[in-house]
Simulated scan of single mutants.
Amino acid sequence: MLKKYFGITLLGAMIALSGCETMPTQTSASQISAINQANLVQRTWTATQLGNSMLKTEANRQNLPYLNFDAATQTVTGSDSCNRLSGSYVAGRDTLQLGQLATTRMACLNNNNLDQKFHEALNKVTHYQVYGKTLKLLDRHGNLLIQFETPTAAR
């Protein structure tokens, strides 16, 4: 009889102790947010696509639009292909709110209104996705507004 109780007690203890095994931790929402924001900053993002149109550098056209995000100052700087721009931003896990952007006012000739189209797209941005060397700025419905590439991988 004692052997039976001892066996049941030992089996119960083994079951209880096996239930105490540590489980792998899941990445929390705040950790995902921090990772996404870290992937966004300290890189130069050059526009490769505006809506459904691919952007290519041509000999008679100035540089493509680009953006830089600075986490320390929460500022975004860059160019719309003609004028320099700067402003504030707030990034969340996958949300991106751009503040009012200040720009220079140079005449932009022969750029097929790329600067205006770029600003119109920036005004609609509500979300972002970063995958390796690609940044996608999206509207509130998840539609691609602008796609960027960077030569620098995440650090």
Results as ranks from 00 to 15, higher is better:
83 N>C: 03
90 V>L: 01
132 G>F: 02
137 L>I: 08
106 M>Y: 03
51 G>E: 13
79 S>W: 01
132 G>A: 03
115 D>H: 09
94 D>I: 00
57 T>F: 12
143 N>D: 15
49 Q>S: 12
151 P>I: 10
103 T>Y: 00
33 S>F: 00
133 K>Q: 13
140 R>H: 05
140 R>P: 02
32 I>F: 06
58 E>P: 08
116 Q>W: 03
139 D>I: 08
124 K>Y: 07
33 S>N: 12
141 H>R: 13
107 A>L: 12
65 P>R: 04
55 L>G: 05
123 N>A: 14
41 V>R: 10
63 N>I: 12
128 Y>L: 10
32 I>E: 13
74 Q>K: 09
142 G>C: 03
29 A>G: 10
92 G>W: 00
55 L>D: 02
64 L>W: 04
73 T>K: 07
83 N>E: 06
43 R>D: 11
49 Q>H: 11
110 N>H: 10
90 V>F: 00
116 Q>F: 08
85 L>I: 06
86 S>H: 05
82 C>N: 07
33 S>P: 09
52 N>V: 15
84 R>N: 09
120 E>M: 13
45 W>G: 06
29 A>C: 06
62 Q>Y: 12
149 E>Q: 12
139 D>M: 09
54 M>K: 15
135 L>H: 06
114 L>I: 11
92 G>E: 02
116 Q>V: 14
89 Y>K: 04
93 R>W: 00
71 A>S: 14
113 N>M: 12
131 Y>T: 14
108 C>D: 03
66 Y>F: 10
25 T>A: 15
63 N>E: 13
127 H>W: 03
135 L>P: 04
130 V>S: 11
80 D>S: 05
31 Q>A: 07
31 Q>V: 02
139 D>C: 05
30 S>K: 11
41 V>E: 08
144 L>P: 05
65 P>N: 06
88 S>G: 06
101 L>D: 03
106 M>S: 12
59 A>D: 15
109 L>V: 14
84 R>K: 13
146 I>L: 05
110 N>C: 08
149 E>H: 06
147 Q>P: 08
122 L>M: 14
116 Q>M: 12
97 Q>G: 02
43 R>F: 01
50 L>G: 11
94 D>V: 01
127 H>G: 14
90 V>D: 08
86 S>T: 10
96 L>V: 02
140 R>V: 00
150 T>A: 07
69 F>D: 06
105 R>I: 03
71 A>D: 12
40 L>I: 04
57 T>I: 13
87 G>D: 02
126 T>D: 09
34 A>V: 03
132 G>D: 05
87 G>C: 07
